[in-house]
Design a protein around this nucleic acid. Structure first.
Lengths: 220, 220
DNA sequence: CCGGATCCGTAACGATACTG
DNA sequence: CAGTATCGTTACGGATCCGG
């Protein structure tokens, strides 16, 4: 059997890659996964998570001391699915958007995840910064280190260099370049702590125009 | 809805990405697709092909004059799924092989397709060559042009620079580096027309050790 | 309250037979 | 040989129910 078919045996069933996408944003609890994948039955989610654990893609872990809740997280092997998700996202960004539930189900952190896949390498090379973003009810952070840009759910575990807050519509415009960070801040559509320069750079890294283009796959 | 979910709406159902993988090897007839995906019912195949045409991924075409048979082929948009398949193949190559049906269902052209994804760019840059390979009953050809390596089913439409013939086991060893092309030819395990140098280069391009490593996704 | 196992009606599936 | 129709089986989503 060919490698592609073997992959699809593990991650080809319905919902599976969406679970992986969710876990690329960091460890998640069962209820958070259910909330993010609201059309999925809780029994299916349990079955998928079990299958992913059996395949060594996902691991169940107990959060330390004060939290003491169990979370699911990607193993190193599962983390290597990141290029697959990035490629699918780049391809899907060319697909027409079905307007019915679009804005209702849209999540800024997923947009940021897709945009981060194509952050210009010449910008990220020497960067070591963390930005925390509050978009509507969502909180996530973006860390640029060692030439890669990672988007994760929740507040930053370290004190961020930048904290920015806006609504979802403004976030869309920022990410698509319809509005500049400078103007969004000036017009009061974004609240920024940490300086205009960092705010501008954050959305150079999260530029959706780049993500919409074809991503190239090269030997590591 | 996020781009990943939109992609999976189109290509996330069972068999769909395997159809795309098949068509990456060139246009195929209905019966050839059925033969390659033997566990798939003919009704499902028809349904999937219809869905892919509706989504603009696949196109039905009538082959010109003497042939006059209809084939399915990828559109330009569908061709852009190539990175997705390559990433899945690279990831799946780390997965354990189920021995039950392994050798029975193994196809050299699929191995070649996966290997071609990671051909060393420094080798392919200035190349303009075509190799035709006969492995068991399979015939396919590899063309290296404009810095990219393409694997396609069937004999080469142009006179190839190299023609090589071997059995599947030898092909495996060649592609994994277990045997050198020089030795395979010397020991009579491969029949080569076109020169030893080209034969050696062909399997530098189709080196599975490269494909097994992580592929990187970079902005185009 | 949360993880996740069980039950049930519906939709998708694989195999096969059939039609143009 | 491409594509459709039928049928028994499996996978699914939603709701409900238990154990911690």
């Amino acid at each position: 059997m060919c490698p592609v078919a073997r992959s699809l045996d593990v991650v080809g069933e319905r919902w599976t890659l969406l679970i992986v996408r969710e876990l690329l944003l960091g460890p998640k609890r069962n209820k958070d996964l259910l909330a993010a994948l609201s059309a999925m039955g809780s029994n299916r989610l349990a079955a998928r998570l079990q299958g992913l654990q059996d395949a060594g893609v996902v691991r169940k872990r107990m959060l330390p001391a004060p939290a003491e809740v169990q979370v699911y997280e990607l193993t190193e092997f599962g983390e290597r699915l990141r290029p697959v998700i990035y490629c699918l996202g780049a391809w899907g960004s060319e697909l027409p958007v079905k307007d019915d539930v679009d804005r209702g189900a849209a999540r800024a952190e997923l947009i940021a995840l897709g945009a981060s896949a194509a952050s210009p390498p010449e910008l990220t090379a020497e960067l070591d910064e963390t930005y925390e973003l509050h978009v509507g009810e969502e909180r996530f952070h973006v860390s640029a280190r060692h030439g890669t840009v990672l988007v994760r759910s929740g507040p930053s575990p370290v004190v961020p260099d930048l904290l920015a807050e806006c609504d979802l519509a403004t976030f869309f415009e920022l990410v698509t370049g319809a509005i500049t960070p400078a103007r969004a801040a000036r017009e009061g559509r974004a609240r920024v702590v940490g300086g205009q320069a960092l705010f501008t750079r954050a959305f150079q890294l999260l530029n959706y125009k780049h993500a919409a283009r074809e991503l190239r796959v090269v030997p590591a």
